[in-house]
Computed example of a mutant assay.
Amino acid sequence: MTEILVLVGSLRAGSTNKQIAETAVHNAPEGVSLTVFDGIAHLPFYNEDIDTEAAVPQSVVAFRSALSGADAVLVITPEHNGTIPAVLKNAIDWASRPYGESQIMGKPVAVIGSAFGQFGGVWAQDEARKALGIAGASVLEDIKLAIPGSVVRFADVHPKDDAEVVEQLNEVVVGLVAAVGTAQAA
């Protein structure tokens, strides 16, 4: 079983990106488990003073444990003012530590998402890839999915009912699974 941890950069209950995550989970191929980690909203802002064995918050312990148990990570993000949401950047900062021992180090990561604009959040996705790469993840630059016009496109239809989105998400997941296989063979 390939375990993929899904991080969604939106906290809004009706978020299109959360719906895309639900769609990915619902359509996971056989032998693949996708789990959405809902706890990034509970991570305190990264502060090295509390990132110690004696003081690390339980929310961070749970997050790092989820990362540790995953074979790969799928990040699904909206675009906030042309970049990644603060909550996602904060999660990446926590994932990057402790230095030299982070649970995201070398882990295959794909970044996708949707936004209202005409480019589907590509700026946010590029910024997330950059931050994740610096954090030590094995960012899959060839796996991309940016869905533009989300507010209009999904006004009357859930992404799970959009055949094109379902097919594209399947390609993303299959690509992540292939990267896990490549990483394990190395």
Rank of each mutant, 00 (worst) to 15 (best):
M1Q: 12
I4D: 05
G9D: 06
K18Y: 04
Q19T: 06
Q19R: 12
A21Y: 02
P29T: 12
E30W: 03
S33D: 13
L34A: 02
T35V: 14
V36Y: 06
F37M: 01
G39K: 08
A41E: 14
P44C: 08
F45C: 05
E48I: 10
D49T: 12
D51H: 06
P57V: 09
V61F: 07
A66Y: 04
L67S: 10
G69H: 09
G69K: 13
A70F: 13
A70N: 12
L74E: 08
I76T: 01
I76C: 04
K89I: 07
A91M: 03
A95G: 13
A95S: 15
R97A: 06
R97D: 08
P98C: 09
G100Q: 11
I104E: 02
G106N: 14
K107F: 03
K107P: 00
P108I: 09
A110H: 06
I112V: 15
I112P: 03
S114C: 08
G117N: 14
V122N: 10
A124Y: 00
A124D: 02
Q125M: 13
R129C: 11
G133W: 08
G136H: 07
S138Y: 10
L145C: 10
A146K: 08
P148M: 11
R153E: 09
F154H: 07
D162P: 03
E167C: 02
E167M: 12
N170I: 04
N170W: 04
V173Y: 09
G175H: 04
A179W: 02
V180A: 04
A185G: 13
